Simulated assay, not measured.
Amino acid sequence: MEYYIKSVIPVIESNYNKFTMVEKTIADFFINNQKKINFSAKSVAAKLFVSEASLSRFAQKCGYRGYREFIYQYEESFVEKKEFMTGNTLMILNAYQELLNRSYSLVDEKQIERIGNYLNATKKVIVCGKGSSGLAAREMEIRFMRIGVDVDSITDTDLMRMQAVFQNENSLVFGFSIGGQKEEVIFLLKEAKKRGAKTVLFTANNRDDYREFCTEVLLIPSLRHLNHGNVISPQFPILIMIDIIYSYYVEQDKTKKKILHDRTVQALEETYTEKAE
């Protein structure tokens, strides 16, 4: 795992919308900074024309006990970036590697294990999303269906609202919304949670009120602050987390799930053979 670096940058980005204007100034500095300087509270406060207390509040909103703990992690993970990229291929590959690093920084293995346990305990799984997130929802349906999970993906607004009525304590609902603001996805999660279902939101935007209707909020890296992020598929960060969950889930009963997977592959091969004949 030496190639990956635990970074505070994805944590800052996922909490960005919580910040005051002063805290956003601090956030922008740490997100965009590429030089090793004196990061003491006194020095940074003077540089940004903010108070040391503002630095402390900023750090606490990021989930740290204070600025000292925050800056320790920041300095540990700080890597001076080289901007000598040439060619579109290298540019894209570097952008994907950056997203992998950010995913590594955000992933919580205990949370992934809990979600794997929810999958094992549930009778019905619903996965919903719109646009690119809807394509990721369809991919999750196909992946997990092949190992015996009773799962449906929903990308239609009306179906999301109708399905909300049928969820109960035997249901597990995944909602994909990178910005965390897709009304129909949020509606389904809220209604499902009211009816006793477990709910998991994949989002790049961490908000306190999500905890009211989400059993788990699974953070994914944002493309917003990523150089050349507009040419990267928004599905990619979601698919990374789906693959991690899939891996944990399969490991919980590897032999049984491998048999189910092989049977589905065999069934597909038989279908293709019959068509060829």
Rank of each mutant, 00 (worst) to 15 (best):
Y64V: 12
Y74A: 01
T157R: 09
T203K: 02
A95W: 10
T264G: 10
Q252A: 13
L99V: 10
I186F: 00
N101V: 14
N120C: 07
G66I: 07
K130F: 05
E13Q: 03
M85A: 15
F166Y: 12
C62W: 05
E212M: 06
H225G: 04
N206Y: 08
V11M: 01
I126C: 00
N88P: 04
F187R: 00
F70R: 01
T155I: 11
A267K: 15
N88L: 07
L268V: 05
P221Q: 07
A41C: 15
D150N: 11
S247D: 15
E169C: 07
E98Q: 12
E270H: 15
I186N: 04
A276F: 06
A204K: 03
N120Q: 04
V185E: 02
V125R: 02
I220G: 02
Q181L: 05
I92W: 13
L119D: 06
N32V: 09
L93P: 09
G179L: 02
G63L: 11
Y4Q: 03
R138E: 07
R102F: 01
G66L: 06
M241H: 14
I186V: 09
V127M: 10
I9D: 04
E69S: 09
Q97F: 14
I31N: 05
H261V: 13
V217K: 00
Y249E: 03
V173G: 00
Y246Q: 13
G66T: 11
M21T: 15
C62D: 03
I92F: 15
L189A: 01
N38D: 06
E141G: 05
R161E: 13
K81S: 09
F144Y: 07
Q163R: 06
E184P: 03
I112T: 11
H225I: 01
P237M: 05
A46H: 12
S43I: 09
V265W: 09
I37N: 08
S103L: 15
L172A: 04
A204C: 05
E23Q: 13
I220Y: 02
Y272A: 13
L172W: 00
S171Q: 10
S54W: 00
F70M: 01
S56H: 08
A192T: 02
E98H: 15
E141D: 06
N120A: 06
E52M: 05
I259T: 14
D158K: 04
L188E: 02
G180N: 02
F176N: 01
D150S: 09
H261W: 14
K254Y: 10
K124V: 01
L55P: 13
S103I: 15
N170M: 06
K82S: 14
E113Y: 12
T199F: 02
L239G: 08
D253P: 13
R65M: 08
L159S: 08
F30Q: 07
L48A: 10
L189Y: 06
R161F: 12
V127N: 11
G131N: 10
G131S: 13
I232A: 05
V231H: 08
F78R: 14
L106F: 01
Y96M: 11
V265Q: 14
S222I: 04
N227V: 14
G116Q: 07
E184R: 02
P221G: 11
I245W: 09
K61Q: 13
D243A: 12
L223H: 10
V22S: 10
Q60G: 05
S222G: 08
D243L: 08
H261Y: 15
Q181Y: 09
M85T: 15
I240R: 13
G87S: 02
T155R: 09
E83G: 15
N117G: 13
I9G: 01
N94Y: 15
S105R: 07
S132C: 06
G116E: 05
